[in-house]
Amino acid sequence: MDEILVLAEHRQGELRDITFEMLFAANTLGKENGLATAGLLLGHETSGLAGKLKGACDRVLVIEDPELAHYNADQYLMALETAVKDRKPLLTLIGHTAMGMDLAPAMAARLCLPLVTDCVELSLEEGRLGVLRQIYGGKINAQLVMKPSDHYLISLRTGAFDAEVEQGKSGDVETIPAPAWTNLRGRQFAGADILVSIGRGIGKPENIPLAQKFADAIGATLSCSRPVADEEWLPKSRQVGTSGKTVRPKVYIALGISGAYQHQAGMKNADTIIAVNKDPMAPIFAIAHYGIVEDLLQVLPVLTEHLATK
């Protein structure tokens, strides 16, 4: 059975409304035309999100990789290409959002697919796609009929479809292997104004969600020092320091980072540095503006709570 692929959009651990709006559109069209709906989840540690998608699609497809933890056009394009080539869907739906607008045109050019953006209605008649768009700032409606194609790429306007998609399906979760990250063009997430950076003191990968939760609570991005990247607990692209990235955020929170000079070179120009380390002699305290000599695993839950109840 032919398929409608829906690229799920999520940010900071939450599925965004557009995901459910697209699933609503896909399920409606699918029901009328005998098409199955597949939600595509690109990310890292997405099992929670997959659970929330299951009820609204016939299949949940997952590509899991640390490189996909944060949206980045290079990696997302490659992952989406992998999924599209694997599934060969009739339609692929993407949100006309900051993410989808960044992704869809390059995707279409790369795979030579017809793309219609910012659609507010969809229809299929004898395999031909019809869409309604609004042009001239919403002053004119344009009803388009597309030329026949085996595959269309479509971006949907936010709010054009109902986000209250009917639950009641129970899609199986299938994993698609992540592509080899070759020929990337070098676009990288350059960090936000607040960085929560973890070092060896995080102890084990199981403790990372604790730091992620804290970072999410303050809208920060999670980065790390070299040992964490070497252990592959976070991707190399998140590493701060001479062999990683140089950052200059407003606030840099160093958790369990001793502060070797290679690390300092990458972050010492941050406006405010707050360091948490068990070792009062850690070099990080020499350049930090504020220091907490405690175990970060003790500090994090309490601090997260304080910020949440502010």
């Binding site: 900051a98 960044d102 045109p105 390059a106 279409a108 050019a109 790369r110 953006t117 910012d118 063009r185």
Partner: peptide
């Protein structure tokens, strides 16, 4: 402001094979 496709710049980037950013 007319057709509002929001496509040309990034399609161009892909044809040129260079890095890009939107918005």
């Amino acid at each position: 402001s007319d057709d509002g496709w929001a496509q040309v710049g990034l399609t161009l980037a892909e044809l040129l094979g260079i890095s890009y950013a939107s918005l």
